[in-house]
Design a protein around this nucleic acid. Sequence first.
DNA 1: GCTCCCTCAGAATACGATTTCTATTATAGC
DNA 2: GCTATAATAGAAATCGTATTCTGAGGGAGC
Lengths: 336, 336
Amino acid sequence: MAELKQAEIAKLAGVSQATVSRVLKGDPQVNMEMRERVLAVVQQLGYVPDARAQSLRSQRTRLLGLVIHRAPDALAGDPFFSALIAMIVEQAGRYDYHLCVDTARTARSQRAIYEELLRTRRVDGLILVESETHDRRIERLSREGFPFVLIGRYDPEDAVCSVDNDNIGAAFLATDYLLRTGRRRIAYLGGPAGLTVTRDRLQGYKTALESHGVGYDPSRVVFADFNPRSAASATTELLRQNPPPDAIVALDDMLAIAAMRTAKQHGCRVPEDLALIGFNDSPLCEYVEPRLTSVAVEIPTLARKATELLIELVEGREPSLRRQIVPARLVKRDSA
Amino acid sequence: MAELKQAEIAKLAGVSQATVSRVLKGDPQVNMEMRERVLAVVQQLGYVPDARAQSLRSQRTRLLGLVIHRAPDALAGDPFFSALIAMIVEQAGRYDYHLCVDTARTARSQRAIYEELLRTRRVDGLILVESETHDRRIERLSREGFPFVLIGRYDPEDAVCSVDNDNIGAAFLATDYLLRTGRRRIAYLGGPAGLTVTRDRLQGYKTALESHGVGYDPSRVVFADFNPRSAASATTELLRQNPPPDAIVALDDMLAIAAMRTAKQHGCRVPEDLALIGFNDSPLCEYVEPRLTSVAVEIPTLARKATELLIELVEGREPSLRRQIVPARLVKRDSA
DNA sequence: GCTCCCTCAGAATACGATTTCTATTATAGC
DNA sequence: GCTATAATAGAAATCGTATTCTGAGGGAGC
C-alpha cells in the first residue's frame, strides 16, 4: 500500500490536490460531480489526512492537555483521576479532540512541563487541576494568553476560566448535617494547606459552625498529604485531643477512609464515637465498613463543562460563562 | 513577544536557519563558536522548537497512544487504570514521549479510533490492554506494521510484542494457597469471557486444582462484566449452589469486593465460610473489612517494560525480548 | 605549487496539508 | 455582441523544521 497523500488521491481522481483538500473540508465551493469523484477515491483507498501536516498548516493539533500534579504512586490508587480522565477523553472525543495526559511530581518538573507543552504548541489548550492559592502556572498562562481552564477556583485573576464544585457549599452541607445530628466537636481533615480546595472547604466548615453558634477551634483543623501515612498521623493528632472530636469532615474519601482505619485502631467506634464524612462519593464508599457517607461531586459534569469551555477558548469563541459552579449533594450512608 | 521560529534565532545569531536546527539537534558538525552564539540567543529568548513542524518533518510525533476499552463510567472507579496511566506517562516522559489516552466503549467506536490513530499518524505507537482471544485490532496493526505493544498475551501471532503478568502462575498461586489452607470447593469469578486474562487465570486455577487432585467443576466457574451489578449476580449464582463454594478466586479486586459484599448480604462470614482472593493488590484491599487478600501484579514494572518496548519499536530498534513476563506474588491479608 | 580531501555552514528542498491568488468558463445584463 | 460578474478549479505560497545538496576555505601530501 503506497503512502497515501492528497496528491495521490488527486491524481487518481483527475483533479488538483487543492480540490481534494476542499472536498474533505466540506468546502461548498466545489461542484457535485467533482466532489463525488474525489469521495469515491477517498472511500475506496481509505484515505485519511495526516494529522501532523494538518497541525502544522492549521496551527491546531486538536490535542488538549491535562497535567496532574502528583507523583505517579500518589495517583495510582485514586479513582477521582481515572474518572476525570475518562470523562474528559469522552467529552473531548465528541468534538474531535484528543487528550494528552502528563504528570509532574516536583515543582521544577511542573514548570518544565508547562513550559514545554505551551512553547512547543504540542497541545491547543490545557486543563489545570488542584490549583494553589498563588499559582504561578496560572499567572504564566494568563500572561501568555494561552487557552486554559481551571478545574477549581482562582481568586486573584478574574478573567480565568474555571469550573468548580461548590466546595464552600459542599463543606457547609456536610458540617451542617453533622451539627444537626447532634455532633458538636467536629474536626476538619484537609489536604495540603496550599490547595484552594482545602481552603474553600475549610471556609464552608467554618461558616456552618458559626451558623449553629458553635465556636471554631483551630486545633481541630489538621492538614495531610495525599498518602495513608500522612492521613493516619493527622488523624492520630486529632484523636489524642481531650476531649477528642466526635466527627471528622475529610477532604476526600481516601483521607476519610484512612481516618476511619486509624480511628478503629484507636478503639473508636464509627459512627457511634466518631462520625465521618468524605468527598467524591467514590466507589470505595460502598465497600468500606461502615459504608462512608460522602459528598458527591459530579465529576462527569465537571469534566464536561471544563472540556466544553476549553474547546470554546481554543476555537476562539467567547465563552458565555467564564466561571461555572457545579452543585454538590450529600450521599448519606452509615458512617455519619 | 514575536513569534519565535528558527529563522528569527538565526537572524539574531547571524547564522543560517539550518545551523540553528543543527545546534539544537546536537549535530557534532558545527563548531564551538557558532554553537555558543546560537545557544546564547536560544537561551535568552527561551526558544523551543515547534512540535507540530518537527512532527511533520521527522514523521514522528513523540506521542504514544493508549486506548482503553471501557465505558468511561466503568473506568471511573478503577484504580488499576489510573495507576497504569500514571506509570506509562512517567516512563514515557523519561524518553521525551507524551501519552495520548483514548477510550472506546463500543466495538464500532473501537475500530474507528484505531483507524483514526493509525491512519492519521497522530501517534507513533500504541499500547493495547485487555486483549481478546481473537483480536481484530491486533491482526490489523500487525498487518500494517504499525508499532504496538500488548499488555497481556496473544497466542496466534507469535511476533506480537507483549508484556504480561504471569497470569497463569498467579492464579495457580492463589488457588494453591486456598487448597493448602484446606479449601476444597473453590470457585472462579472471571471477567468477560472473551478476555485473554480471564482465560489465562482460569487455566492457572484449573492446573492448581489438578495438582491437588481436586476435580474441576465447570459450574463453579462464572463470568461477570466490570460492574457491581454483574459481579453481584454472578456471585449470587455461585452462592446458591449446593453445597456452596468455600472460596472464590476473583479476576480483580473490584470483583472480589463486590463478591464480598454479596456474600455478607447472604449471611456468609468471610473468611470463615467463604475465603476470597482478588487481583491487583489495589489500595482498596487495605480498606475493606476483612482486608482483602490479593495477588499483587507489579503495575509499575508492567508499564515500564511496555513503554520501553514500544519506544524501541517506534525508534526502529530490534527489541531484545519481544515477550516479557512479570511475576506476581500473593499478598496475604484477612479474607483468605 | 597543485591537487585532494575534509570540515563546516549556507541554500534549497521536502514533509503533507490549507489557503490565497489566479485563470478559465459560463452566465447575465445591456 | 460585448463587457461585467459569478462560479469554480488549478497553481502557487505557506506553516516551521530537518536534511540533502552545494560551495567555500583550509590543511595535508606529493
